[in-house]
Design a protein around this nucleic acid. Structure first.
Lengths: 160, 160
DNA sequence: ATAGATGCAAATATTTTGCCGCCAG
DNA sequence: CTGGCGGCAAAATATTTGCATCTAT
């Protein structure tokens, strides 16, 4: 599996442990105990410029503080999942069979990935909202989570 | 019921080991070598009434012929994936972290799963086709695969 | 006959669990 | 102080690989 190029987005924060991000605030407001390692992990996830898997989260956390343990990463991810604060993605197994995580905001989006260069883009659409409403109605289901992943070849990768 | 067309469950084909199914025919036409174990595995997948993972495929295959090996299941799944004959799903990790497979026909569909009872239903929609076209256009991508999985609570599981 | 497929064991990769000492509140 | 949390090792789960042997064509 190819190592995906590191995208440095403008929004990437340099100093990870500076201010409490969205996730930390969410846990605080729920009265969840905030340990040293949790603060580090939350800041890593809050400031990620791309989707990270458990291993990548561990790496970045250990750069901030080597005392963070692999198992704690999994336990913290589980905590966040249980609290509905992150989404677990597979990204079409583009980069392997592990899971990727993203702190999910209020807006639901589709992941659009290029199968060649591996770039993942997020896409929002009113049509998607309509589709979900149609599913809810026609299947008589109360939808609580959705995941749409699209793979293909981007403009650059189609050209010779 | 719904205005939109929807297929019932994954497969309704009845008899497992009888006649060559869609998958076997597809491989034959491509000149792929058809071994004893491949025929068995293909028939298992062609006649599955629900989405199976590698372990479930192995189990069913061994009931037909105990000489089928686990590794062969993975290698055959890989063969089918490479030939674009099956889709690999995660079904929202409803039943665990393994992958599920389905022989994919010409029609693309959405998987709608109840998070409580685990029932998975397939759903087709013109709206979905439109959405894909919109993505292709707006993201300037040539789409080759899509996966949409929706989780929620079905009518029965919402009731007391 | 022979290229390609299978079986077996062992290696990888990822995630989970049991147990005990530690620390945030 | 104390109940939840984290570290460590080991288990569990899922999948892949090396190599010798077998078989469909």
């Amino acid at each position: 599996m190819p190592t995906t190029a590191h995208r440095v987005s403008a929004g990437e924060r340099i100093n990870a442990h500076a201010l409490p991000g969205r996730l930390q605030e969410a846990l605080e407001s729920r009265g969840v105990r905030l340990t040293r390692q949790r603060k580090i992990l939350l800041s890593v996830m809050d400031s990620a410029e791309r989707h990270l898997d458990a291993g990548a989260i561990l790496e970045r956390a250990q750069k901030l503080d080597p005392r963070v343990h692999k198992v704690t990463v999994y336990r913290t991810l589980d905590l966040l999942k249980r609290n509905g604060l992150i989404d677990e993605l597979d990204l079409l197994h583009l980069r392997g069979d592990q899971h990727f995580y993203e702190s999910h905001g209020p807006r639901d989006h589709i992941h659009v990935a290029c199968l060649k260069c591996g770039k993942v883009r997020e896409f929002e659409s009113e049509l998607y909202e309509k589709l979900k409403k149609q599913i809810a109605k026609d299947c008589n289901i109360q939808i609580t989570l959705t995941r749409t992943e699209v793979g293909g070849y981007c403009e650059k990768c189609r050209k010779p």
